[in-house]
Computed example of a mutant assay.
Amino acid sequence: MPRRLIIDLMRASCDVPFVSLARTLNIRPLLEARGAAASPPGFAAVFVKAFALVARDEPTLRTLYVKWPWPAFYELPRNIAMVATARVEDGEPCVLPQRVGDPDRLTLAEVDAIIRWGKEAPADQVPAFRKMLLTTRLPWPLRRLAWWVGLSFGRQRANWFGNFAVTGVSAYGGGELHALSPGPYILSFDVAKPDGTIGAMIRWDHRVTDAALIARTFARLEEVLNGEIAAEIRASRASEPKPVRAIGA
Rank of each mutant, 00 (worst) to 15 (best):
G173R: 12
R234M: 01
A212Q: 15
E232D: 08
G154W: 10
L138G: 07
A109P: 09
P41W: 03
R11H: 14
L25K: 02
E89A: 14
L31W: 07
P184W: 07
L134M: 14
A158P: 03
P243V: 08
W160R: 04
W204E: 00
N79H: 13
A52R: 03
W160P: 02
M201P: 01
F129S: 13
Y74D: 10
A121N: 10
A128E: 11
W148T: 10
N159K: 05
E232L: 00
R216S: 08
V83T: 11
D90V: 09
I80T: 13
L221K: 09
R245Y: 10
E240G: 05
L142I: 09
V149I: 15
R4D: 04
E240V: 06
A33F: 06
I114D: 11
N26Y: 02
C14V: 07
G101H: 09
A246G: 14
L142A: 12
A211Y: 12
G196I: 02
P97G: 12
R62Q: 11
I229P: 07
D190F: 10
Q98E: 15
K131W: 15
A113M: 07
L221T: 14
R4S: 15
V88R: 15
P139L: 08
L64R: 11
A165S: 10
P241S: 01
H206K: 12
R144Y: 07
E232W: 04
T24H: 04
L138M: 14
Q125N: 04
